[in-house]
């Protein structure tokens, strides 16, 4: 069954115009389609830091199988990734590296802060640990737990998918230029690249 009446080559559209198309048509907003495809093929950057990274890998492995959501491809290059899962405690020494990697990711990009150490410093309130990765990059979803089990991480991912699909995040970003209410200034004087409603 083709899109076009009795004609798989698309000639009907050319000869008859829009009337040449008869059925199997869905109409919708382009934005929904874009958001849907973004949510369904989100590639995470490999950014395992500590204990949570082990659970993140477990989520990607056979039993929990993140491939079901089009997310099995952990990209080593941040330029190919859409999602940064900050899995573990962020040290003072790692924070600049983390920021560099975030800056290297292409827009649109999202961040999940996995585990209490990434979210708030957790039990390590000391000289070495950044008290919450949202001081360094804007965070979209926080996953609680120490470490969060694969189910919690999956839930965080679903939450993110839902907010991407309803466009909430991009609307907020278009208004404020930021993620979770945090000012994002790019390095080297670049302005943030905003995609979405203007």
């Amino acid at each position: 069954m083709g899109l076009f009446k009795d004609d798989v080559s698309g000639q009907g559209l050319l000869t008859d115009g829009i009337e040449g198309i008869e059925h199997n048509i869905l109409t919708g907003r382009l934005e929904d389609l874009v958001n849907w495809s973004r949510a369904r093929s989100m590639w995470p950057a490999t950014f395992g830091l500590a204990c949570c990274a082990i659970e993140m890998m477990a989520t990607g492995a056979g039993h929990y199988d993140m491939a079901r959501y089009g997310m099995e491809v952990f990209r080593a290059s941040p330029r190919q990734a859409d999602l940064m899962i900050v899995a573990g405690r962020v040290s003072q020494k790692m924070a600049p590296v983390l920021r560099t990697i975030y800056d290297q990711m292409m827009e649109p990009k999202w961040v999940i802060s996995m585990g209490v150490c990434a979210s708030s410093g957790g039990m390590f309130n000391n000289y070495a640990i950044v008290q919450g990765v949202d001081q360094v990059v804007p965070v979209d979803v926080y996953a609680p737990g120490c470490p969060p089990g694969p189910e919690t991480l999956l839930h965080a991912i679903f939450t993110l998918h839902a907010s991407i699909e309803d466009g909430e995040l991009l609307r907020r970003r278009a208004e404020t230029g930021a993620g979770a209410g945090i000012e994002v200034a790019q390095r080297d004087g670049q302005v943030p690249v905003l995609i979405g409603r203007s």
Binding site: A50, R89, S91, K93, N126, Y127, A128
Partner: peptide, 8 residues
């Protein structure tokens, strides 16, 4: 890069 100050 993962120094957590656990001894402190």
């Amino acid at each position: 890069y993962l120094h957590t100050g656990m001894e402190k």
